[in-house]
Simulated scan of single mutants.
Amino acid sequence: MNRKRMMVICTLLLALSIGQSSTWGSRANAAALAPERALQVQDSEASKDDELLDTLGLSSDEQLYDALYNGQTLADIASSHQRDAQAVVDLQVAQLTEQLDQRLANKSITLEQYQAHKAELTQVVAKSVFGL
């Protein structure tokens, strides 16, 4: 296995883990305090994953993992399945905006932080999707 490729995948997985760490902690707490709420959170996250897979034209997480592992960008994956890469950008921007809205409502970020993140969100997501 190519060491460089392995490092890229590990870095991607680490970034995804860090980005979801607050959600994982909340899920564990929710399960202890309110099991029905924990199921809602899990269902919501699963539906977001399904939306991404549908938008990309894929049927499983494994297909997505394999394509990313083989060096394809999300735009490449969408194109190879006759899907619009801009739809992937729009979906991810909408999902991340929802997260930002929740963080602002929970007061885990300030209004200034919210505005700064929101201002650069589309550009950052587009760069990620198109591999720029």
Rank of each mutant, 00 (worst) to 15 (best):
L52R: 03
A38L: 09
A38G: 08
Q86L: 13
S59H: 12
G25F: 01
G71N: 00
P35M: 00
L56N: 07
A67N: 10
L74N: 01
S79V: 02
R27D: 00
S47C: 02
A34I: 14
G71E: 00
A85G: 11
E36C: 14
L68V: 11
D49I: 12
E62A: 13
V41G: 01
A28H: 14
S60D: 06
D61E: 01
L39S: 14
A85I: 09
A32K: 11
I77V: 14
E51T: 05
E62C: 08
N70W: 05
L52Q: 08
E62G: 07
Q40W: 14
D66E: 12
Q72F: 03
A75M: 04
L39I: 15
D50R: 12
A34G: 08
E45P: 01
H81V: 07
R27F: 00
H81S: 13
S60V: 06
L52S: 11
D66R: 09
W24G: 06
S26A: 08
L64E: 03
R83I: 01
Q86K: 15
L52F: 05
R83S: 12
S44D: 13
H81Q: 14
Q40Y: 14
A38P: 06
H81W: 07
G57C: 13
Q40L: 15
L33H: 12
A31Q: 13
Y69D: 10
T73M: 07
L33S: 14
L33V: 10
L53G: 04
L53V: 06
Y69P: 01
N29D: 14
G25P: 00
T73V: 05
S26N: 03
D76G: 02
A31W: 07
L39A: 14
A38M: 11
L56G: 06
L68H: 02
W24R: 05
E45D: 10
D66V: 09
L53T: 08
A46K: 15
K48Q: 10
S60N: 07
L33R: 11
A34Q: 08
D50S: 09
Y65Q: 08
S26F: 01
L68T: 05
Q86W: 05
D54W: 06
L58D: 02
E36P: 04
E51K: 10
R83G: 12
E45W: 02
H81I: 05
H81C: 11
Q40T: 15
S47E: 05
V41I: 13
I77M: 09
A78K: 02
G57L: 08
D54H: 11
S80A: 11
N70R: 07
D76H: 04
Q86F: 05
H81E: 14
G71I: 01
D54C: 07
D76M: 02
Q82E: 10
L58I: 02
L68K: 07
E51A: 12
A28C: 12
V41F: 03
D49K: 06
A67F: 05
H81P: 15
D43H: 09
W24N: 04
A85Q: 09
A75R: 01
Q42C: 14
T55K: 04
E36D: 10
D61I: 00
L33Q: 14
S80V: 04
A30I: 05
V41P: 01
L58Q: 02
A46S: 13
R83K: 15
W24Y: 05
D49E: 10
D66Y: 07
D43Y: 06
T55C: 13
W24M: 09
S44N: 12
S26W: 00
L58G: 04
S80G: 13
D84K: 15
A75Q: 05
Q42V: 15
